[in-house]
């Protein structure tokens, strides 16, 4: 564990907290993409299958990972519940039209071609990594459709992007300190994912400089 990874994970937790805070305080999920949340649910549930096989108390790191994995899975499920049940009437279904089945299919094909080992777990893991790298797209697409972006929604995306950026630093750090060399899959997809966020950052910072509300082109 290094400071970059810990910082990244904490930003990830903050982003989830912001998301739930936005929904709970405004009693609305307007501007949020249910499709992105569903993709994250798929990502977490295909990546964290090792929860069933790893002893949480094996080491401090597995304990930490277990807690975080359960947190991500449960908060993701709760967010979907809020959007689909409790605040369903505020959900912007008309604009949230990104076709996620194509993303899922593409991630599945890529995972079948590129994986670290030919096992079900490794292929599902690769699938989750591919899918995570594009999971934010429906959310960005929705923001583009509706134009103006609420502050808290942009903070949510900003935190997610920060989490990905810190993970890249984490990988550079581990490359040199632990000589981790075989993580090309996570590195490649993580970089693509970060670039998608960088595009959002650009407009976010632009709107900040002009002191205006964020508008995506």
């Amino acid at each position: 564990m290094n400071i970059f990874r810990l910082g990244g994970d904490m930003l990830h937790v903050v982003s989830i907290f912001l998301l739930l805070l936005k929904i709970q305080t405004s009693h609305s999920c307007a501007g949020l993409s249910l499709k992105t949340q569903i993709l994250y649910m798929v990502v977490f549930s295909t990546r964290y299958l090792d929860l069933f096989f790893t002893k949480p108390w094996h080491s401090a790191l597995t304990f930490y990972n277990t807690i975080m994995k359960i947190l991500f899975l449960s908060s993701s499920a709760y967010t979907i519940y809020l959007m689909q049940k409790r605040y369903k009437h505020t959900y912007d279904k008309v604009h949230d039209t990104f076709r996620i089945q194509y993303l899922i299919a593409a991630a599945a094909v890529l995972a079948l071609i590129f994986h670290l080992r030919l096992t079900v777990f490794e292929i599902l893991w690769a699938f989750s990594v591919f899918l995570e790298s594009v999971a934010i797209l429906p959310q960005l697409f929705l923001l583009q459709e509706t134009g103006e972006v609420e502050n808290i929604t942009s903070h949510y995306i900003f935190c997610l992007g920060g989490y990905r950026t810190l993970y890249i630093f984490n990988w550079v750090w581990r490359y040199f300190t632990e000589h981790r060399r075989n993580q090309w899959l996570a590195w490649g997809c993580g970089t693509v994912q970060t670039l998608i966020y960088a595009d959002f950052f650009y407009y976010y910072i632009l709107s900040r400089k002009q002191g205006k509300k964020l508008r995506l082109p």
Binding site: D50, F53, H58, T62, L116, F121, R180, N182
Partner: peptide, 10 residues
């Protein structure tokens, strides 16, 4: 499974 492949990140 996780440790074997070195997936120790989230």
């Amino acid at each position: 499974v996780a440790a074997e492949s070195g997936h120790d990140e989230l």
